[in-house]
Simulated scan of single mutants.
Amino acid sequence: MNLFQLGQQYQELADRDDLDPTLLVDTLDSIQDAWNEKANNIAKWIESLDADVEWLANKKRSISDELTYRKNLRANLMTYLTSAIDDRGLKEVHTDDYILRPRNYKQRTVIDNEGKVPAEFKHTNEVVAVDKTAVYKALKGGAKVPGAHLKPNRKTSIK
Protein backbone atom coordinates (compact mmCIF):
# COMPACT_ATOMS: atom_id res chain seq x y z
CA MET A 1 0.00 0.00 0.00
CA ASN A 2 1.20 3.48 -0.70
CA LEU A 3 0.75 6.60 1.46
CA PHE A 4 -2.28 7.86 -0.51
CA GLN A 5 -4.19 4.64 0.10
CA LEU A 6 -3.43 4.75 3.79
CA GLY A 7 -4.56 8.36 3.97
CA GLN A 8 -7.70 7.25 2.17
CA GLN A 9 -8.31 4.53 4.78
CA TYR A 10 -8.12 7.08 7.55
CA GLN A 11 -10.40 9.44 5.64
CA GLU A 12 -12.97 6.68 5.16
CA LEU A 13 -12.75 5.97 8.87
CA ALA A 14 -13.19 9.65 9.70
CA ASP A 15 -16.28 9.84 7.48
CA ARG A 16 -18.05 7.06 9.42
CA ASP A 17 -20.77 7.93 11.93
CA ASP A 18 -20.88 4.62 13.78
CA LEU A 19 -17.54 4.72 15.59
CA ASP A 20 -17.80 3.81 19.24
CA PRO A 21 -14.51 3.65 21.19
CA THR A 22 -14.14 -0.14 20.86
CA LEU A 23 -14.84 -0.17 17.14
CA LEU A 24 -12.45 2.75 16.63
CA VAL A 25 -9.60 0.97 18.41
CA ASP A 26 -10.24 -2.28 16.57
CA THR A 27 -10.38 -0.54 13.20
CA LEU A 28 -7.22 1.49 13.83
CA ASP A 29 -5.42 -1.65 14.99
CA SER A 30 -6.44 -3.44 11.79
CA ILE A 31 -4.81 -0.83 9.54
CA GLN A 32 -1.46 -2.22 8.47
CA ASP A 33 0.83 0.78 8.60
CA ALA A 34 4.15 1.79 10.08
CA TRP A 35 3.67 3.23 13.58
CA ASN A 36 4.98 6.69 12.56
CA GLU A 37 2.60 6.84 9.59
CA LYS A 38 -0.33 5.71 11.72
CA ALA A 39 0.51 8.29 14.43
CA ASN A 40 0.90 11.01 11.76
CA ASN A 41 -2.51 10.23 10.24
CA ILE A 42 -4.18 10.10 13.65
CA ALA A 43 -2.62 13.48 14.56
CA LYS A 44 -3.96 14.96 11.31
CA TRP A 45 -7.38 13.55 12.12
CA ILE A 46 -7.25 15.06 15.64
CA GLU A 47 -6.30 18.46 14.22
CA SER A 48 -9.18 18.22 11.78
CA LEU A 49 -11.55 17.38 14.65
CA ASP A 50 -10.19 20.33 16.67
CA ALA A 51 -11.00 22.64 13.76
CA ASP A 52 -14.49 21.12 13.47
CA VAL A 53 -15.12 21.55 17.20
CA GLU A 54 -14.02 25.18 17.10
CA TRP A 55 -16.20 25.89 14.06
CA LEU A 56 -19.22 24.21 15.66
CA ALA A 57 -18.70 26.09 18.94
CA ASN A 58 -18.60 29.39 17.05
CA LYS A 59 -21.69 28.38 15.05
CA LYS A 60 -23.52 27.45 18.26
CA ARG A 61 -22.60 30.81 19.80
CA SER A 62 -23.74 32.59 16.65
CA ILE A 63 -27.07 30.76 16.61
CA SER A 64 -27.57 31.43 20.32
CA ASP A 65 -26.89 35.14 19.78
CA GLU A 66 -29.30 35.23 16.85
CA LEU A 67 -31.98 33.45 18.89
CA THR A 68 -31.59 35.94 21.75
CA TYR A 69 -31.72 38.87 19.32
CA ARG A 70 -34.91 37.60 17.68
CA LYS A 71 -36.62 36.90 21.01
CA ASN A 72 -35.79 40.40 22.22
CA LEU A 73 -36.91 41.96 18.94
CA ARG A 74 -40.20 40.05 19.12
CA ALA A 75 -40.78 41.25 22.70
CA ASN A 76 -40.02 44.85 21.72
CA LEU A 77 -42.35 44.69 18.73
CA MET A 78 -45.11 43.16 20.87
CA THR A 79 -44.69 45.93 23.47
CA TYR A 80 -44.81 48.60 20.77
CA LEU A 81 -47.88 47.10 19.08
CA THR A 82 -49.76 46.71 22.36
CA SER A 83 -48.89 50.26 23.45
CA ALA A 84 -49.90 51.70 20.08
CA ILE A 85 -53.30 49.99 20.21
CA ASP A 86 -53.83 50.98 23.87
CA ASP A 87 -52.82 54.60 23.19
CA ARG A 88 -55.54 54.82 20.56
CA GLY A 89 -58.11 53.44 23.02
CA LEU A 90 -58.98 50.51 20.76
CA LYS A 91 -60.11 47.11 22.02
CA GLU A 92 -59.55 45.37 18.69
CA VAL A 93 -57.88 46.16 15.40
CA HIS A 94 -58.77 44.50 12.09
CA THR A 95 -56.09 44.56 9.40
CA ASP A 96 -56.11 42.87 6.01
CA ASP A 97 -54.55 39.74 7.47
CA TYR A 98 -55.02 39.82 11.25
CA ILE A 99 -57.27 40.59 14.16
CA LEU A 100 -55.25 42.20 16.94
CA ARG A 101 -56.62 42.17 20.49
CA PRO A 102 -54.64 43.53 23.43
CA ARG A 103 -55.29 41.61 26.62
CA ASN A 104 -53.99 41.17 30.12
CA TYR A 105 -52.10 38.02 30.95
CA LYS A 106 -51.06 36.79 34.39
CA GLN A 107 -48.89 39.42 36.03
CA ARG A 108 -45.20 38.68 36.32
CA THR A 109 -43.53 38.44 39.69
CA VAL A 110 -40.44 40.64 39.77
CA ILE A 111 -37.90 40.17 42.53
CA ASP A 112 -36.14 43.52 42.98
CA ASN A 113 -33.98 42.51 45.90
CA GLU A 114 -33.72 38.87 47.04
CA GLY A 115 -32.17 39.95 50.33
CA LYS A 116 -35.30 41.88 51.32
CA VAL A 117 -37.72 39.03 50.56
CA PRO A 118 -38.82 37.42 53.87
CA ALA A 119 -37.60 33.88 54.63
CA GLU A 120 -41.17 32.49 54.42
CA PHE A 121 -40.99 33.00 50.64
CA LYS A 122 -37.69 31.19 50.21
CA HIS A 123 -36.96 27.51 49.75
CA THR A 124 -33.73 25.58 49.99
CA ASN A 125 -32.85 22.72 47.71
CA GLU A 126 -29.11 23.06 47.35
CA VAL A 127 -29.19 26.84 47.08
CA VAL A 128 -31.55 29.33 48.66
CA ALA A 129 -33.99 30.67 46.09
CA VAL A 130 -37.13 32.77 46.17
CA ASP A 131 -40.37 30.90 45.59
CA LYS A 132 -41.92 33.18 42.98
CA THR A 133 -45.22 31.30 43.06
CA ALA A 134 -45.63 31.95 46.78
CA VAL A 135 -44.60 35.58 46.32
CA TYR A 136 -47.11 35.95 43.46
CA LYS A 137 -49.94 34.50 45.54
CA ALA A 138 -49.12 36.77 48.47
CA LEU A 139 -48.89 39.89 46.31
CA LYS A 140 -52.04 38.96 44.42
CA GLY A 141 -53.82 38.52 47.77
CA GLY A 142 -52.90 42.08 48.72
CA ALA A 143 -49.94 41.36 51.02
CA LYS A 144 -46.80 43.46 50.92
CA VAL A 145 -43.62 41.53 50.13
CA PRO A 146 -40.48 43.61 50.57
CA GLY A 147 -38.14 43.35 47.58
CA ALA A 148 -40.82 42.16 45.15
CA HIS A 149 -43.67 43.52 43.08
CA LEU A 150 -46.07 42.45 40.33
CA LYS A 151 -45.52 43.72 36.84
CA PRO A 152 -48.42 43.98 34.40
CA ASN A 153 -48.15 41.55 31.52
CA ARG A 154 -50.19 42.99 28.68
CA LYS A 155 -49.74 41.60 25.18
CA THR A 156 -51.63 41.53 21.94
CA SER A 157 -53.09 38.30 20.63
CA ILE A 158 -52.63 37.97 16.88
CA LYS A 159 -55.21 35.91 15.04
Rank of each mutant, 00 (worst) to 15 (best):
K137F: 01
L90K: 15
T79S: 13
Y136E: 04
P102A: 04
A57W: 00
D96Q: 12
P21F: 03
K140A: 09
Y69Q: 13
V130P: 03
L90W: 01
Q8H: 12
N72V: 01
D18I: 06
V117N: 00
N36P: 02
P152K: 13
P21G: 07
T22I: 13
E66T: 07
L67C: 12
A138M: 05
T109K: 00
R88Q: 12
D33F: 02
L49D: 01
K38F: 10
N40D: 15
A34K: 13
L67T: 08
D17F: 05
Y69I: 00
L28G: 05
D96H: 14
R108Q: 12
N76V: 05
T156R: 06
A14R: 14
A129Y: 08
D18G: 10
D26C: 00
N58H: 04
S83A: 14
E54P: 01
F121G: 03
G142L: 12
W55Q: 09
F4D: 11
Y105N: 11
R16C: 04
T95N: 03
N153L: 04
L100F: 12
G147W: 01
Y69N: 15
L150W: 08
K116L: 13
A119E: 15
R154V: 15
D87F: 00
G142M: 04
Q11H: 10
S30P: 03
P21D: 08
K106G: 11
K155I: 06
A148R: 02
D17A: 09
L139H: 06
D15A: 14
V117P: 04
A84D: 07
Y69K: 15
P146H: 07
K155G: 07
K106F: 00
V135R: 05
L3E: 14
V128Y: 02
D20C: 09
A43L: 13
V135G: 01
D87P: 00
L13C: 00
Y98D: 15
E37N: 11
S83I: 09
H123L: 10
L56S: 10
D33P: 03
A39W: 00
P21L: 04
L49A: 09
K137V: 00
E66Q: 08
K44C: 15
T79P: 02
R154M: 13
A14I: 07
N104Y: 06
G7N: 11
L56R: 12
D65L: 14
I42C: 11
N125I: 07
N125M: 05
K137S: 05
N153I: 01
E114N: 07
K132D: 04
W45S: 13
F121T: 05
S157A: 11
G141I: 02
E47M: 04
L73E: 09
R70M: 03
T68E: 10
N76I: 03
A143F: 04
M78Q: 15
S48T: 05
K71G: 02
D15I: 08
E12S: 09
L139P: 08
N72W: 07
I85Y: 07
L6D: 03
W35N: 10
D20S: 07
T124I: 06
D112I: 03
D96K: 15
N41E: 06
R103C: 10
N76R: 15
Y136S: 11
Q9L: 14
K59L: 12
Q11D: 13
V110E: 14
A119W: 02
Q8D: 07
N36W: 02
L67N: 13
K38I: 02
R101N: 14
Q107G: 13
R16V: 10
W35R: 14
V128K: 11
T156N: 10
E66G: 01
T109L: 06
Y10N: 01
D20P: 06
